[in-house]
Design a protein around this nucleic acid. Structure first.
Length: 263
DNA sequence: GGTAATGTTAGACT
DNA sequence: TAGTCTAACATTAC
């Protein structure tokens, strides 16, 4: 799930459930998702503190931890992450790797089925983002910057949209939707795009991400004319009815309509 | 049992 | 040298 819209929704979820509650215990069930920190150290940083506020940057979520020092709980969800606020320990979610216990008896579980997510503590947000060499957040980037970035880029447009060094937040799923809405083939070479096509992609990127957030990133809520309502090889194009096709681009599955998205 | 899955990145390649 | 591409990571679900 977790591309920019999902991460934004996870942030809203944490905000609605888990802020300003004293953390009484931290349980790390699998240390493999920890980034540059030990389980003991993570627990020490969080114990007797509370979660204060949220910032999202690309696919990263930073949760401000209470206290004089400006430090953040960093969450990255990889390909299969999630968060869950729950009370009954008997019904804790499967694949939960880290669990915060609050004073009120509730828990916040950090789930990572495939262990590709990352959790850590960040004390210098600016430096963290620089070290990761992330581009601007996809929802904040302006067209002049977008255009400039693409002008130095080679290869296909789908990979460019997914390149977190160019801009942060778009992944495999949403790049498909952005290109479907833009009526541009995912394998299209960036250097062959004219100004008007770049403008369209830029506008669709903003629109697709914003609408996805408004839909709580639930595919069932997505507009009928979206590819993502039915992103599979048996689907028909919601625009022209042709068969949706799948191909490999940069090692990832790309779904597209061969009629609407000519190369 | 084979295949694919929404991300990132080290190392190979151009 | 720097940008691009590929394979690997670990696990589960179909």
């Amino acid at each position: 799930m977790p591309e920019l819209p999902e991460v934004e929704v996870f942030g809203q979820y944490i905000q609605a459930t888990s802020l300003h509650k004293k953390i009484v215990k931290v349980t790390v069930q699998d240390e493999r998702i920890l980034e540059n920190i030990s389980a003991d150290n993570l627990a020490e940083k969080l114990k007797n503190k509370s979660l204060q506020s949220l910032k999202r940057y690309g696919k990263y979520l930073f949760v401000r931890i209470s206290g004089d020092d400006e430090i953040y709980l960093m969450l990255h969800f990889g390909m299969s992450g999630n968060v869950k606020y729950f009370r009954d320990i008997e019904q804790q979610p499967s694949h939960m790797r880290i669990r915060l216990e609050f004073e009120n008896g509730y828990y916040l579980g950090i789930i990572s089925q495939r262990l590709l997510g990352k959790v850590g503590i960040v004390d210098d947000l600016q430096k963290f983002l620089e070290d990761k060499e992330l581009g601007g957040d996809a929802l904040n980037i302006d067209f002049d910057t977008f255009k400039e970035l693409l002008s130095h880029k080679r290869g296909n447009i789908k990979s460019a949209l997914m390149d977190q060094h160019l801009m942060a937040g778009v992944g495999n799923i949403y790049s498909d939707e952005i290109l479907f809405q833009s009526k541009i083939h995912p394998a299209c070479d960036v250097s062959s795009l004219n100004l008007s096509q770049k403008k369209t992609i830029f506008q669709q990127m903003k629109q697709v991400l914003q609408i996805a957030i408004q839909c709580s990133s639930e595919p069932d809520n997505f507009p009928d004319e979206w590819l993502l309502r039915n992103r599979n090889v048996d689907a028909k194009c919601p625009r022209c009815g042709d068969n949706i096709m799948r191909t490999k681009i940069s090692g990832r599955s790309a779904y597209f309509c061969p009629t609407c998205q000519k190369q």
